[in-house]
Amino acid sequence: MTDPFAFLADLLVVRLLGLDMAQSLGGALHFFIEDTAKIFTLLALIVFVIGLFRSMMSPERVRKLIGGRRRIVAYPAAVGLGAVTPFCSCSSIPLFIGFLEAGIPLGVTMAFLIASPMINEIAVVILATSIGLQFAVIYVVTGLSVGLIGGLLIDGMKLERYVEDYVWKIRMGESALPDHPESWAERAAYAWGEVKSILKRLWLYVFIGIGIGAFLHGYVPQEFFTQYASVGNPFAVPLAVLIGIPLYGSATSVIPVAEALLAKGVPVGTVLALMMSIAALSLPEIIMLKQVIKTKLIAIFVGILAVAFIIVGYGFNFIFS
C-alpha cells in the first residue's frame, strides 16, 4: 500500500496501538483514521482549488448562461452547471426563484436542483480515490441522467401551477455588482474562506458518515449483508431508497458508508441507489422547497426521483451480477 492515508492508519492502529486489523476494533479504527485523514485532506484541497476559480461560477452567472436558451441547450447546461456548482440547501430557494424569474423553464430549474446536490467535484474526486474511477464515472453519468430525465418529466407534465403564486410575482433586480479587480491574493483569500465555511458546514456530517462506515466495516458481519442486501432480495433497492430520502447528508459524507457497503459485498446498484437518495433528497430540503412549491409538486418531485433511483439500483445490479 502506497496510499499515504492508509499508511498513516497502519502506523497508528497497527504499530502504535498494536491492534489486529482483522479484528473488529482494529478494522473499524483503521477505516476511521484512514477515511478521516483522506476525506478532510481532499475536501480542503479541492474546495481551495475550486475556490480560486469560483467567481466565474456564481449562481447569478449560471442564471445568465441558461436564461433565454432553447431547451435543447438549456437542459444539458443546467445539469452540467448543477454538477460543477455546489450549493447548500439554503441557496436552493433563491436559485429556484431566480431561475424561474429569468424565464428558465420549471423543468430545467428542477434538473439543476436535482443534479446540484448529487454531483460535485469534491464527491467525484473522493469517490474516485476511495472507491475507484469506474464507480465515480458511473455515479456521475447516472446522476446527470437522472437530473435530465427528472427535469424533462416535470416539464412534460406542465406543473407550473403548483409553484406558489408569489414566486411568479417576484421581480429580480439586475445585480449591478461592481467588478472589482480580482488579484490572486484576493482569490486565495476567498478560496480559504470557502474552505473554512464548507468544512464548518460539513464536518459533522462527514464524521457521522465515516463513523457509520467504520462501524459497518468492523462490526457488521458480511453474512448480514449477503442475507439481506444481496441481489437475490428484491426489496433491498427500494428499501435503500426509502431509507435515504429523509436522511440529510452531502454526497461527500455518504462516500465512507458506500465504501464500507461495497467492501461488504453489497451490490453496486443498491449502493448507488442509497447514495443518490441520501444526497439528492432530504427532509430539510423538502421543507425548504415547501416555501416555493405546493405539496403536490413536491410529492411528484420526490416520487420521480425515488422511482429513478430504484431503476438505477435494479439496472446496475442486473448489469453487474
Binding site: E60, R63, S91, P94, I170, M172, E174, L177, P178
Partner: peptide, 28 residues
C-alpha cells in the same frame, strides 16, 4: 425576505448593501 434579497439581484448570500447600493454578494 427572499423577495427583497432577489430584488437586489442576489442569488447567493451573504450580500452587502451600503446606502441602498449592492456592494457585495456570494461570500463573507
Amino acid at each position: 425576505d427572499m423577495a427583497a434579497i432577489l430584488g437586489y439581484g442576489v442569488m447567493k448570500t451573504p450580500g452587502v448593501v451600503i446606502d441602498g447600493k449592492l456592494a457585495h454578494a456570494g461570500s463573507v
